[in-house]
Every structure is written in C-alpha cells, then in structure tokens.
Write a protein that binds this DNA or RNA. Structure first.
Lengths: 268, 268
DNA sequence: AGAAGGACCAGTGGTCCGTA
DNA sequence: AGAAGGACCAGTGGTCCGTA
C-alpha cells in the first residue's frame, strides 16, 4: 500500500520506487556518496512518482528507465512527446503527491542532489588543479544534465531557492506553512510567495539583516545564491524599521534609545 | 634632495609628491579612510614620480594635476597625446624610480588602492541592499576609473597579481628577489616570471598545495583572484612530486612511507 | 626589443516569456 | 488559469594583440 507513507519529517521517506543510484559516472566523476556529514542519514536517492523519458531523444547513454508503473492512468503520452516534469503541488512533510504531480519533499530533495553534483564538480576541479566553484553554477547544472538528471534545470532551482532556505533554516515553520497552505487548498505559487515573509523575520531576529551571511553560515544553503527578491525584501524591511525607529526616537526626544545597530557600515 | 629616500620596507615611504587624496566621492561613495585594520599604518595616498594627464581629455571634473615637475626632461608631450602609464622597472624596496619609470613599491601600492576601492563598492552595495562583491571585479575597476584613478586597469592588475602575492606572503623573499634582479639588471618581465617559483614553494611548504586557500587566508590577498598560471604551476608541481614519491615508494617496497596526504579528494 | 591596456570573447548569473 | 524550462541578454573573468 502507499497510503501509510506519512510523517517522515525530512526530505526523504517517500519510499516508493526505490530507484537505482542516478548519480552515474560522467567523464571521470567520483561518486561521492557517503561523505556528506550534513544530514546524518544515509541519503538513498529516491524519486517521487514520475515517468522519466529524457527530453531529447538522441542523447548519450544512461537513461535509467524505471518501468514499474505505479502511477495511475498514464494513457498514451509514452513515445517521444515533449515531456516536462510534473508540476509541484503543496504537500505536507512526508506526503506523497498523487496523480501527475510532484510534492515538496521531492522539490527539496532536488536541492540536495544539486549540492551533491556540486561536490563532484569540486572534486574534479581539485583533482585537475582548476578553479573550484563554491556555488551551484551553470557548470554544475550542465554536469547534472550530462549525468542524466535532465529533470534539474536552473530556472526551476532558482525559482524555489527561498522555499528551500526556509526549509533549511526553520523546518518547523516551513512544515507549518506547508500544512496551512495545503489545508486552505492554495496553489504552489501562493505557497512560494508566502515563504518570503518568515525568512525576512529570520533576518530581522538575527539582528544583522544580512541574509547573505545567514545563507553562508548554513552548510546546505551556502551553495546557493541569495535570490534577488529575497535580498530586496530584507533590505526594504530593514529600511522601513530604520525609518520608523528614527521617527519615534525624534518624537521621543532624539535620545540614544531604540535601535542603534544598523548603519554600522555607514560613511566611515 | 631625493636620494635619501630608501629603506622603507613597505609599500609606502617614497615620499615625493605627497599628492592629495585621490579617492574622491563618486556617486555617493563613502570615503572609507581609516577603517582598514590591515596595514596598521595610516595609508596616505602617495604616487611615484609620474605626470598625470588623464587618458581621455573630455572627462568629468576632478583631475588632480600635480604640476611640481621634479621629473627630468619631459620635453613636449604635454598637450593631448595618447598618454600611457610609465613602464615599471625593477626597484629595491623604498627606491624611487627615476626618469619616465615607475617602481615596484608603486605597483604594490596600486593593489592596496584597488582593495580600498573594493571596500567602497562593498559599502555602497550593503547600503543599497545589493549583491556585495568579495573580490576586485569589473565593477570595482569601473568604479576606480570613475573615481579618477584612470591609471588602474584590469589587464595590468591581473598581470602582476602573483608578484603582489609574494610581497604579501613573504616580504623578505620578495625583497631579496627584487634586489637580486635589480643587481643583475634584469627587466620587469624577467622579475615577474621569477615571482612564480617562490610561491609554488610556499604552497608546497604549506602542505596542502592549495593556493586558493593560501590567497583566501591573507587579508590583503583574499580580494584577488588566483592567477590561472600560478594555479597551474602549483598543480603541476604537486603532480610531479606525487609521481616521484609514488615511484620511490614502489621502488622501496610500496609501504606507507612518504607522502600520503595528497589525493585526499580522490574517488570516495 | 619590452611593456601598457583597449577591446574582444566564451561562458555566467539572472530570469523572461513562448510553451504545454 | 498556473507552472516548467528553453533560451536570451547584459555584464563577467580572462587575456590577446594591435599600439606606442
């Protein structure tokens, strides 16, 4: 049965289709497997229910076709249609998306996969004495594609980075948000938008408003560029607070009362 | 007189023409002056003997013309000739270049100036909530130009980065090399080439052969990209040693004897 | 000849918008 | 309508080569 697969808080746990390792060797790439040290748990590669036909037909070699069809009603779009990834829906933690959909655990899993691809690219670069990327760059996306992970692409990953950030930085809040938005029947776009606010709150609580340093201090998040929009929101909110506290302090007499710590990078 | 200006070990000290601050305000830039904390000494901007006509005639405002001509024989190339920076010559530490030449203290000073421009760009970026560069990027070179430092350009700075690196990482060795090459009457190109080897030695002694981490751990050097050629040389030398020690250990019986620490990033 | 730097180029970060 | 991702674009890192 498949209905009992709930309540695995992390990105793993939707244990249908235990697919074979998809991180295959590409141009001498090292399998980096167990040397993670971040999530603790063994990161067995899982994929949510999804038919994988590679987008372009005449490509290289390894196309690990999984032919266990446990999806219901996939009628005829088998042969060589322009096959996109199924759209995401808002799922609770541990919940498997049904029908032609993908869940959010799967989304977050993609970020971890990208990080693994980055580690492989880094290992190759060091081996060869080349410049070593610290972030998930175009080079990493290209590598992922060549390694057979055709379902990974830059626009998608960039689109949801801040959702993954919330998942990393405050998993409880992230989970609560997912449950609330699923409850209300909101679509993925709405959930995605809603992920911004809690992150701004985290930057505020941190005191520095420095979203870059927050990203960089988290081991799984540090490999991702801070999304422009998130940076803008943090900056706008800091300015808003700054203005407010300046006004209130000039009203209350201008004494050194409330918030002194911002603008520490002011002119000299 | 000017002949007594020797023996200032650092990049400062060639105290002719104490020119006014050339880090002028550009589009709201903060003068960052004293908040350095790296060199300790007050970094009063000095320039070696050099006539400054800006390259392009019809430009904005501030062109701090210094008209004390202590240079000998600059005949007639005053008006609007295509004026390049004087070429570098190999000088001892503290030595002022005579004639239409620039010395190496001046060269190294340019690197410090670029870092100050970077700090200004960083401050502006933080102020505005924009992405904040960690290295001397195109943006910084553009900013330097707009700030009136038309004598700074990317090809030049990139060309001599490793020379500056040696100056930062082992000033004694750097000074010795300069004296030796001046003694022998070598040109700048030869001196520049010779700067590579001691750096490879430093990477070797460090044990990791990781020239990137060596650059990044030095506060003044960390803002510069590691030159491709230097990275290649370090890698090649590591490989050479690796091969040699592998051969010798297979000759001596293959026991775990000599160098085990490299290839720590090997396949799993 | 030796050297300074304008200007070019392949590949980047970023994301829009034609597609399904 | 909501969403996935090919493909474009301005500006980057890197350095060659026409210039002086």
């Amino acid at each position: 049965g498949a209905a009992t697969v709930v309540d695995a808080l992390s990105t793993e746990g939707l244990s249908e289709e235990p697919v074979q390792q998809e991180i295959v060797g590409v141009e001498g790439a090292a399998d980096v497997g167990g040397s993670e040290g971040v999530m603790g748990k063994k990161m067995t590669q899982l994929r949510s229910s999804r038919r994988r036909k590679p987008a372009r037909r005449p490509r290289g070699g390894q196309d690990n076709e999984e032919d266990e069809c446990d999806d219901e009603e996939d009628e005829d779009e088998e042969e060589n249609r322009r096959q996109r990834e199924h759209p995401f829906i808002v799922t609770e933690p541990g919940e498997v998306a049904r029908g032609k959909k993908n869940g959010l655990d799967y989304l977050f899993h993609l970020y971890d996969q990208c990080r693994e691809f980055l580690v492989q690219v880094q290992n190759m670069a060091k081996e060869r004495g080349e410049k070593c990327p610290t972030k998930v760059t175009n080079q990493v996306f290209r590598y992922a594609k060549k390694a057979g992970a055709s379902y990974i692409n830059k626009p998608k990953m960039r689109h949801y980075v801040h959702c993954y950030a919330l998942h990393c930085l405050d998993e409880e809040a992230s989970n609560a948000l997912r449950r609330a938005f699923k409850e209300r029947g909101e679509n993925v776009g709405a959930w995605r938008q809603a992920c911004y606010r809690p992150l701004v709150g985290i930057a505020a609580r941190d005191g520095s408003w420095d979203i870059d340093s927050i990203f960089n201090s988290h081991p799984r998040l540090s490999v991702w560029y801070v999304p422009t929009r998130l940076r803008q929101l943090c900056h706008a909110e800091r300015s808003r607070l700054c203005t407010a506290s300046a006004a209130s302090s000039s009203v209350s007499g201008g004494g050194p009362t409330t918030a002194q710590h911002h603008h520490h990078q002011h002119h000299q």
